[in-house]
Each structure stands twice: as structure tokens, then as C-alpha cells.
Design a protein around this nucleic acid. Structure first.
Length: 283
DNA sequence: ATGTGTTCCTGTCCGC
DNA sequence: TGCGGACAGGAACACA
């Protein structure tokens, strides 16, 4: 499901029910997601107070009073559902466990957080907070797009000499952390760059222009609460609405929205994944 | 080292 | 309606 804006939206949704609260009871309803869950996960979570919720790339990190950090990745279809808490004007009662409800966290105070993941490409792990950044899944990640380390000179240097299509390069989490298929398509569309171009053969000023565009697209998407495709929802059950702002993604056959451009959005497949772009104005 | 294709899993949608 | 195939927000892994 989720790219950086959706994960950030989920993190923000979880904050009021989790941060500062104790996990009264944890239930692990199956032993594995993408990989086996950590040993004795339910016991290690039970009684722990959540001291903070962080995000790194598409991961959520819950720092616990036990000195451990719960690392969460939602994969393609993972969701964090909140129930039993006053949310806006509505009171949500606890629903009966549903298909693919794999992990249930009952928070002190009555809220319940349920991790549901039909495809089970998601993951969870428990690691010492002090060594969280050294976790194999986090160690190789590139810079956060909103951080100072993600700069125009950085991106120009990072793409220099790369022979892979720029679409694939921006999907590479070691180049920049958090972009996925939707937002790469949207960024390249706004940049007017053909996704098939080799990353190392694009003029430096055009590569540099990607940096503020990446931040802009991600910031707009976070502002909109992410993109709701299929049944993705924010943790509080609200739908994100950035999907209405897509200019390229999933618009095959639709007219290009660039003023004056006569083009039609086309879908191609690159390294096994769909790319949508305008062949007329993306060069 | 880079680049590419395959794989994990379930659900949904579309054409016949 | 049923059935088969394509496709889906990710990314580790194996191999050229």
C-alpha cells in the first residue's frame, strides 16, 4: 500500500492513541508476516509504554519504555486500524476480529490498534532502541527527502554514471528513502523527464530540479492524508484524497494536464512495474 | 558493483 | 455467474 505520505499519515493517526500510553495487552494471531515475528513478541510488548512514534522511510518505529523499538513496515496491503476510541464525532466500538487481522495491541485507556495485512508483505521486528539505525533493513536506506542530507548536489552525484532508467533509480530506497511507484510517476511527470531516460544521462540542472519537486509532491500528499487506492484508509478510518490530484499515475489514455500539451498518458512496464507518463512533454 | 527478473501472498477486476 | 489471467501502494533475493 503505502509510500512515505501514507506511512506518515498512519504515524500521525497512531500518535494520539499510542504515544505516552502503555500496551495493556498484545495479541499475535499468526506467527509470521513476511518473515517470522520476533520471539515472544506479545510478552515483550505487554506492559511497555510507547514513548514515541518515529518514521524512517516507509517504516514506523515505536520506541518503548523497555529499551526496545517496535519496527513496523506495512508492505503493500498493511493497515493499522484504530477502534474503541473517541475519534472526531464518532465512537468506534471494537469490531470482531476480521480476516487478516494479524496483530492486536490493546492500549491502556481502551483504544485498540489492529495490524491487518491481506498480502502479508508487511513486517514487524523488535530491536534495541540504541541500535535501531543499525538494523539491516534501515542501515542501507538513503537520506530522508525532507532532510538536509537530501540536497541537489547529493542527488546529482548519486545518479551520476548510473545506467538504470531514472524511474528505477528514484524507486531505489538507497538513493532517496520513501518514494514508491505513485510518487515517482508524479515527480517525473512534474519534472517533464521521460522515465525511460538513463539516470546518469540527464543534465545536472534537471536532476537538481527533482529535489524540490520530490519534496513538493510528498508534502502535498501528506497534506491530503495520502492516497486512498482500493481500501487504504488512514488509521482513523478517514480516506486520504491525494488520488484526486494524480496527474500521471493510473491515468492511461487520459489527456495530459500540462497546459498546451496535446499528449495522452501512456502506461509502460519498467522492471515489472507500471509507469505512467506523457510521451509528448516528458523528454 | 550494477542492473534485471523473480518471488512472496491475497484480493479485485475485466474479458470471455 | 464462473473462470482464468493481469495487476496491485514493496523490496529482498538470486543471478547475469
Amino acid at each position: 500500500m503505502p509510500e512515505l505520505p501514507e506511512v506518515e499519515t498512519v504515524r500521525r493517526g497512531l500518535e494520539p492513541v499510542m504515544t505516552g500510553r502503555r500496551i495493556a495487552r498484545a495479541e499475535v494471531r499468526r506467527p509470521d508476516l513476511r518473515w517470522p515475528l520476533p520471539e515472544r513478541m506479545a510478552e515483550r510488548l505487554t506492559g511497555a509504554q510507547v514513548q514515541g512514534l518515529r518514521r524512517r522511510s516507509k517504516y514506523i518505529l515505536a520506541d518503548l519504555s523497555t529499551g526496545e523499538t517496535l519496527l513496523i513496515h506495512l508492505g503493500m496491503s498493511g493497515r493499522m486500524l484504530i477502534s474503541g476510541q473517541m475519534l472526531g464525532e464518532f465512537h468506534h466500538d471494537h469490531p470482531a476480529p476480521a480476516r487478516h487481522d494479524h496483530i492486536v495491541l490493546e492500549m491502556e485507556g481502551g483504544a485498540r490498534v489492529t495490524f491487518n495485512d491481506a498480502r502479508r508483505f508487511g513486517m514487524m521486528d523488535l530491536l534495541p532502541t540504541a541500535a535501531a539505525e543499525a538494523h539491516p533493513l534501515l542501515a542501507a536506506l538513503g537520506p530522508e527527502p525532507f532532510g538536509n542530507a537530501f540536497s541537489e548536489p547529493y542527488l546529482v552525484a548519486r545518479l551520476k554514471g548510473r545506467n538504470t532508467p531514472v524511474k528505477a533509480a528514484l524507486l531505489d530506497q538507497a538513493v532517496v528513502a520513501g518514494l514508491g511507484n505513485i510518487y515517482v510517476c508524479e515527480v517525473l511527470y512534474r519534472a517533464g523527464i521521460d522515465p525511460r531516460r538513463k539516470a546518469g544521462r540527464i543534465a545536472a540542472d534537471r536532476v537538481a530540479a527533482l529535489v524540490p519537486l520530490i519534496r513538493q509532491v510528498l508534502a502535498e500528499a501528506i497534506e491530503a492524508g495520502g492516497s486512498s487506492l482500493k481500501d487504504y484508509r488512514q488509521a482513523d478510518g478517514e480516506l486520504g484524497y491525494f488520488q484526486h490530484a494524480f496527474r500521471a499515475y493510473d491515468r492511461e489514455g487520459a489527456p495530459c494536464l500540462t497546459p498546451g500539451c496535446p499528449g495522452t498518458i501512456r502506461r509502460i512496464v519498467q522492471s515489472g512495474r507500471s509507469t505512467w507518463f506523457c510521451p509528448a512533454c516528458q523528454r
